[in-house]
Computed example of a mutant assay.
Amino acid sequence: MEQVSKTNEGRVVIVTGAGQGIGRAHALAFAADGAKVVVNDYAADSASAVVDEIVAAGGEAVVAAGDVADWETGAAIVQTAVDSFGRLDALVNNAGFLRDRMLVSFSEEEWDSVVRVHLKGHFVMLRHAAAYWRGEAKAGRTPRARIVNTSSGAGIFGSVGQGNYAAAKAAIAELTIQAAAELGGYGIVVNAIAPSARTQMTMGAGDAMAAQMAAPDDGSFDAMDPANISPLVVWLASAEAGDVTGRLFEVEGGTVTVLDAWQRAASTDKGARWEPSELGPVVRGLLVDSPEQVKAYGAR
């Protein structure tokens, strides 16, 4: 049998929110690809179960449990990688959860908690990992470092009833662009994915969503299997992916799509200040000449 090459042989990778769902699939895929994995989850038992699974399969992994949005915990997770395996090569920001409601019904806590875990959690981990890699670069050991963030189609197109989640995921997409621009000089490449897969979050998002996400019972390709998301993440975290940065990829089943939403479309210049009364036909004309807007998930 032909031996499959491993793109992350010997590399050290942190995966946050890796106790279940997509994060667990990532951790297992990295281990199968030869990486040493730091498995983070808020629940230590869940993280330990994934580590046990990796070790039983002959891989190397350690637990780094805790809240990724906590400053000291984030620093400790990065330090766990360095203490356990001697270095850090890649960070996969995946941790998150949902508190879904319509905008007029959110409590302050429901808004803040989701934005905190998704957006602040991404920043905290990115900040501590980047500080480590900057130190390596300044010491003359420029790394081939990789960060893979997790955005969402909800963050690019919107999703009715998920305003907190959509806002956080949109900010993560922009944080990816920002980080790629700022950190490239230290050998750090930053990209993001917008995954669609069956997880506890999606299965809890309503009966219609659950039916759409259900596994097929006829043995056909399971397009919603979380493991379908991981191959792209594994490649983006590899040394081979050094020429791809600041990009966002939508991943569902066997489909990979470049999301290029942050681009200018049609434009017109009067060469002087506009009068409000002039702008109605101008704006409508620009919209006609621009790509059709993608509707938010759940919008009528």
Rank of each mutant, 00 (worst) to 15 (best):
M1S: 11
E2G: 10
G10D: 14
R11L: 12
R11A: 07
V15H: 04
T16F: 03
A18N: 06
I22G: 04
A25N: 02
H26A: 07
A27K: 04
L28D: 06
V37I: 11
V38A: 05
V39A: 04
A43Q: 13
A49V: 10
A49M: 06
I54T: 00
I54W: 00
G59D: 02
E60N: 10
A65F: 03
G66I: 10
V68N: 02
W71V: 15
I77L: 06
V78E: 04
T80Q: 14
W111A: 04
V114D: 02
V115A: 09
M125W: 01
Y132V: 14
R141F: 09
R144Q: 13
A145N: 14
V160H: 00
V160T: 13
G161R: 00
G163V: 14
G185Q: 12
V189S: 15
V189T: 07
A192I: 01
A192V: 00
A197H: 02
G204H: 04
M209Y: 01
G219P: 14
G219E: 15
S220W: 15
D222A: 08
D243Q: 11
V244E: 02
V258Q: 03
A266F: 02
P276Q: 07
L279C: 08
R284E: 12
D289L: 14
P291R: 07
P291L: 02
Q293P: 05
K295G: 10
